[in-house]
């Protein structure tokens, strides 16, 4: 790890200014990913601008039933928030499915969004990686890629985004408040994080110095009927193989509102809009869910060792939607019986 200068930001503008002054600077939030990457030599900032003490640590109710979440709030605090637990259970569940209690206490909302892929090649500076060092190649395509992308990858990069929280936020159409220079803008989380394309080194659309200050949730009535399912290699404390964030509202056994996002399958949380569109007005049955998810997954291009992710995420999405359907009071949805 290189030596670095440390600055504690006194306010948002000061933070942005400090970053502007140093092209090699990085924001420090909870540090749970950045410190790790600095030790590995993957990140080598010469200045750290500490934004963890900026006063963005609350969850505020906004006018029409939405929430404004401070970017410096810890993952555990957000997961424990009463409103989040009751109105956006998918978000609380996603947060609690991530990492460990210790890490959630330290990790911030903003940092969680911007965490880097856990691709083994990205994390090893002794190997080529287009994300870490553009133009060096992507050994993952032919190498070890069991937990890498099956959707939206490019020849340059097959990384997956590791966040659970971001999958829930994608399903909820969260907006991310970004202070960029002197201007604040709101970027939908589904657009904040990008696909690798020809620029795998860019995880997000943010530019150097852009500061995430808040995450905004608008009123999403169907989010009251939402859940997060995560499949992983051990029962806790590991990254998703695949995950599903789903919200569903049915009426008379018919899908009225649906939200579906898939994790662990792409360079960003994968909002399953094709499946959603197919489901609107359809009967809330396992068969309909399966057809819709299949359509979503049709463009999947798995690699040698991760093809299992396609049926896996399909099963989980169908099961999650089926469970939500079964919970609806109209009682017309039927769950498949185990043999």
């Amino acid at each position: 790890m290189r030596t670095f200068r440390y600055e504690r930001a006194s306010g948002d503008e000061a933070a942005v200014a400090a970053m502007a002054a140093s092209p090699g600077a990085r924001y420090l939030g909870g540090g749970t990913n950045l410190v790790d990457l600095m030790k590995l030599g993957v990140e080598s900032p010469d200045v750290l601008v500490d934004v963890s003490r900026l006063p963005h640590t609350s969850v505020e109710h906004t006018g029409p039933g939405g929430l404004l979440i401070g970017a410096a709030l810890s993952n555990s605090d957000l997961a424990a928030d009463h409103t989040v637990r009751t109105r956006y259970p998918v978000l609380s569940q996603a947060l609690l499915a991530g990492a460990s209690g210790q890490l959630r206490n330290a990790a911030t909302v903003g940092g969680n969004l911007l965490q880097r892929t856990r691709c083994p090649y990205f994390q090893d500076p002794g190997k080529p990686c287009n994300k870490r060092q553009p133009g060096t190649g992507c050994p993952a395509r032919e190498g070890v890629h069991r937990n890498l992308a099956v959707l939206g990858a490019s020849e340059h990069c097959v990384a997956t985004h590791p966040s659970d929280m971001a999958v829930a936020l994608a399903a909820l159409d969260a907006g991310v408040h970004v202070l960029s220079g002197a201007a604040t803008r709101t970027i939908p989380v589904t657009e904040l994080l990008r696909l690798p394309g020809d620029e795998p080194e860019r995880d997000s659309v943010l530019r150097h110095g852009d500061l995430i200050t808040h995450v905004e949730l608008s009123a999403v009535p169907e989010a009251a009927h939402s859940l997060y399912r995560k499949v992983r290699d051990r029962a806790s404390y590991s990254f998703a193989l695949v995950s599903v964030a789903a919200a569903l509202e049915t009426e008379g056994g018919v899908v009225r509102r649906v939200r579906l996002a898939l994790g662990g399958v792409a360079h960003r949380p994968w909002r399953a809009r094709t499946a959603e569109e197919r489901l609107l007005g359809e009967p809330a049955t396992a068969e309909a869910f399966a057809h819709a998810v299949d359509a979503e997954l049709a463009p999947a291009e798995p690699l040698r060792d991760n093809a299992f992710k396609v049926p896996l995420v399909r099963n989980v999405a169908v099961s999650a939607l089926s469970d939500l359907a079964a919970r609806q009071s109209d009682g017309t949805a039927r769950l498949p019986e185990a043999r």
Partner: peptide, 10 residues
Amino acid sequence: AMYHVAVNAD
């Protein structure tokens, strides 16, 4: 993180 030793929940 990559080599999975069973955790308590396992």
